[in-house]
């Protein structure tokens, strides 16, 4: 703790439980790597040393059971769509989905004639953040992840909802 070491008496931090939970959740959203096409390369670049996702608390996981965020990076075919859904269902709550790139968002270049491409991953799983681009640059993906962190931070999981 360097500078702050041995400078204080016993002390207490006062915060609302919701904010504390939001802070904890938003600063360590481990992501489930779902690289399906060329977007996966950008996702890898984002996680690698130059852009270093670790600094915003994100670690790539290969198992849906250890992950909080699913980054769907790439073209989702009909065959894959069923698997995407199944893997999403295996993630533990709270869970979030980022749709990365044109293909995952809307089918992208396969919109008109791609007979076997899912026209948007939001047809099978609920999406929290859409990142546009073909493929999006790592900066764009990081922007999307920061937006997601804002969203998680603003959640109030303990507060009673007024109907």
């Amino acid at each position: 703790m360097g500078l702050l070491e041995h400078k204080f008496q016993d002390n207490v931090v006062v915060a609302s439980m919701d904010k504390l939970l939001g802070w904890a959740r938003s600063t360590s959203p481990w992501f489930f790597q779902f690289g399906l096409a060329c977007c996966a390369i950008e996702m890898m670049a984002t996680a690698a040393s130059r852009h270093d996702l670790m600094r915003i608390g994100m670690i790539p996981r290969s198992s849906p059971r250890q992950a909080d965020v699913m980054i769907v990076a790439g073209t989702v075919t009909m065959k894959m769509a069923l698997r995407v859904k199944k893997l999403y269902e295996q993630m533990a709550d709270p869970k979030y989905v980022i749709s990365m790139g044109s293909c995952a968002t809307s089918g992208g270049p396969y919109w008109q004639y791609g007979y076997h491409v899912l026209k948007g991953v939001d047809l099978v799983v609920p999406v929290d953040v859409y990142v546009p681009g073909c493929p999006p640059r790592p900066e764009a993906l990081i922007e999307g992840l920061l937006k997601l962190q804002e969203k998680i931070q603003a959640e109030r999981p303990l507060t009673k909802k007024i109907a």
Partner: peptide, 18 residues
């Protein structure tokens, strides 16, 4: 193209489907 695959809709008319 088939109309749907395992309950997933395959949109045929692309105009205005957003």
């Amino acid at each position: 193209e088939q109309e749907s695959y395992h309950g997933i809709v395959v949109p045929k008319v692309k105009e205005g489907w957003e």
